[in-house]
Amino acid sequence: MNEDLVGSAPLSFSLPAIEFRDVELAFDDQVVLDKVSFTVDRGQTKAVLGGSGSGKSTIINLVLGLIKPDAGEILIDGENIVGFDDQEMMEVRRKIGMIFQEGALFDSLSVYDNVGYRLNEEGIDEDEIEHEVKRMLRFVDLEDAIDKLPSELSGGMRRRVGIARALIGGPSIVLFDEPTAGLDPPTARTICELAIKLRDLEGVSSIFVTHEMTNLTYLASEYAIVDRKGTVLFAEEGQDLCLLNTEVIMIRRGKIIFDGRIRDLQASDDPYIRRFLRGK
């Protein structure tokens, strides 16, 4: 893993993993995104904050090429994907893992087949798939559920299976669409820890859509390290310090109203942001 990090280090100065340039999108006459521009650097986590219906999921769907913008450019690793057809998009999607808001597990397939789906489609042989699936399920702490069907799982378990499915094959970009919505605090915490591990130990770039402030605090103030015995520990950054590799954008009615470090967000005197952060 560390070698990967070293290997990709020089790139981090040249190309952002994701870049939006003046992206515009409207459904019928409703403008959903209005000249949205931002970048996600390599190894960076960008938290996307915003109210319901503000266009967060739309941004993620644009990254995946599931919908196309009306105007603007979307660059993934320096490639503009706006003009790509489905065939070309498949290549790009290969390096992206996506965690859907509602899980979106294939409900006719078992947990094993869900998690191994991508490898199966790529024609990888069965032994390797099994090994990888078990490793991913261990990562999300769900080894016991391997033979179950999605309908037999709880909401939090589905979400974690969705995470395992997205992370198999080692994508370099991971998109989380409200991965903790509707989960109890400890499970939500586990999911944040997963995101932190990906960021700090695997060098993954990610977009983390959420509207819960606690997630944001975890992501921005903690980092993962591996001790000598190989166990992963989470250490907290000092009160005043702020992690460099985590930033937040705040979006309101399709416009970015804040882009920067979380400390600056908390210090902002924009009334809407203040209300959003405090909840009143």
Binding site: F100, A104, Y117, R165
Partner: peptide, 10 residues
């Protein structure tokens, strides 16, 4: 969203 997921998984 299973169709989206399918496309997302290539």
């Amino acid at each position: 969203q299973q169709i989206d997921a399918m496309r997302a998984l290539g």
